[in-house]
Design a protein around this nucleic acid. Structure first.
Lengths: 198, 198, 198, 198
DNA sequence: GATGAATGAGCCTTCATTCAT
DNA sequence: GATGAATGAAGGCTCATTCAT
């Protein structure tokens, strides 16, 4: 018998990232994904229940990874609040840095999943935002951060901002180099638009 | 395409906002839009070339409105750079404040249009971002803003952040009141996370 | 607008009878039915929910017709029990006499529907058998029929026998002329195999 | 096709009876049959050419058994015509009495095979009916049976009747006990509905 | 022989779009 | 212009069959 190689599942998943990123969830054809994966159409259904579940799988993996690196960061008490925030940014950028299509998928198809509000990844998403809030809250408590900032708004705002910039990068990596973006985001979120000091 | 009886066109457009917002572009059925508009299915095609063009129309209108109020703002020299930025924020929020579905449409279906990169609205979108950059650039030149901030990154970042918060508001207006969001965004973008002064 | 002509539904139904009869339910392709009906594939779904429902519709119509003529017969008190039974036979044969494919459908695809045990027609089917039993029971009570005969067994037995002969007729009308069959069935059911009298 | 290890072939055949009976020919999945047989999917194809041929095999076995017991019966000249007929009935019922699923298969999937009119079993089926006719014809010739009965119609009619009652039994053995059915059929076919003598 | 993962042809169904009225 | 029935292309998914191991 041919052994169900983990490779095949992975190559389907990878192909799906590319095709979803390029064509969008609805524009993506299963046949195209299979082709891209070097696999027969029917094989896709050996590894995934249906088209939707491929997307779920990808997002779950993504959010799980995000969640894990966030969890690790939160535990560290050798870092100041600011350092934590900056590390959080870095961990997000690292996740996508080698994979622009993954960033596009992440940026463009999230709303598709939020609409239903189901799926494993939802818990990760929600908790991810909570963790961001926590860091901000802690920073405020310790006097490291501006107490006028609302942690929840901040987290959402920054999350959205990063998405937009990731999008720009994924579409035109030369015009929006990742390192530049990363640096800019840190600058903006830390100091804001107004000149420091008085 | 469009003809007289602007009423019918408008009711189709309004219906489309609702249906697109609720079901997403692909989930939205033309027949459903027609029904919601109190119009026959075929009539939709008297006013719009196809499904895609309805979305284009809506986004064009939206971006045009945005563009216009931005243009007006830019001209005013009675405002400081900071005041201009804050007015820009306000004008965006005002645009959606009466219409959560419109916000959802704006937030969720933009990527659909960006994929192709065509459509009238694209020019408005691009120039909209340029205008934002310009205000920041001017502010920096005049010493009102932090010179370390990259205007383009800033504009994109803030645009993304606003989208995310608008999304949260549109999904749960009670939990994310528009005025709170607006105030928080101003705080964050102006002062950043770190405490002011030194 | 094109008016939803009752003709179209009928021609689809008629085409379905032919195709179901010839190819069986599973062998029947919707596209083939549409073609046979002179209609576009999609039009089938304007008139029927899905393939299954076409079959349901046909059987419902059939059983309703059967039910109606049986009901009328049962009421008549100008007929002896034997005459009623014979009329029942006739009404069944009349139903199919002009339409061998309908007979094939009736004979071959019933089990498909019984498997689920749902559908409007089920009630007609069940009551149809009940009515048969009633006539026999009445005949026995009045002394017209052999009291040793079990009404329920009789009804089922005869129903099955008729199906088999209808099948033979529908497949080879020359070899099994309907009138011959009808006469034979009456002879068999009334007198049995043994010579009459003692 | 078939090879040694008659066990495996048999367990596939037995599994197929169950699955075909429960799900119908088209609803039956090869994988399900294999599973039920405790065998790998591919192994089914070591013993049978394809799905269709499993059904053929089962029906051939069935009709062969029927044919054999009929042939034996026909030879016996110690039995009256009536006794022969009744023995024929008994042999059919005996065939299924231990195996309701087999009865369901027999009753429900025959038409599938008749549609093509091919397969070994066809000869048995045809000759089976011929044999029934022969017994009736002989009985008539000897004056034991009613000369007005058409042998071919009788055979078909009775065959159909038995099928219907077997079906009822297989679906609800309590409500339609086999012995009752058997007795009722004999009563009906021998004496008919009208009271005997005159 | 035995296995079960892999294959891919095929079909039901949807729905944007058209067009006869 | 207005209607909504009609169209038919397109694609997700199934599953009988194959074949590498």
């Amino acid at each position: 018998m041919r052994t169900r190689s983990g490779d095949k599942e992975k190559s389907i998943a990878n192909a799906a990232v590319k095709v979803f990123a390029r064509d969008g969830f609805h524009g993506a054809k299963i046949t195209r994904i299979a082709e891209e994966a070097g696999v027969a159409t029917g094989s896709v259904y050996l590894y995934f229940k249906n088209k939707e579940s491929i997307l779920h799988h990808l997002f779950s993996k993504l959010w799980l990874a995000m969640h894990v690196s966030f969890e690790d960061l939160l535990k560290r008490d050798d870092l100041s609040a600011r350092e934590k925030i900056e590390e959080l940014f870095d961990s997000i950028f690292n996740l996508f840095s080698q994979n622009p299509p993954l960033a596009l998928l992440f940026v463009n198809e999230q709303h598709h999943l939020l609409r239903e509000g189901t799926g494993d990844f939802m818990q990760y998403y929600v908790e991810f935002l909570r963790m961001g809030e926590q860091v901000v809250r802690d920073g405020i408590r310790k006097g490291e951060f501006n107490a006028s900032v609302d942690p929840r708004s901040f987290t959402n705002f920054v999350f959205g901002g990063i998405r937009q910039l990731l999008h720009q990068w994924a579409r035109a990596p030369r015009q929006f180099p990742l390192n530049t973006i990363r640096r800019d985001i840190k600058e903006i979120t830390m100091f804001g638009l107004l000149p420091r000091s008085g």
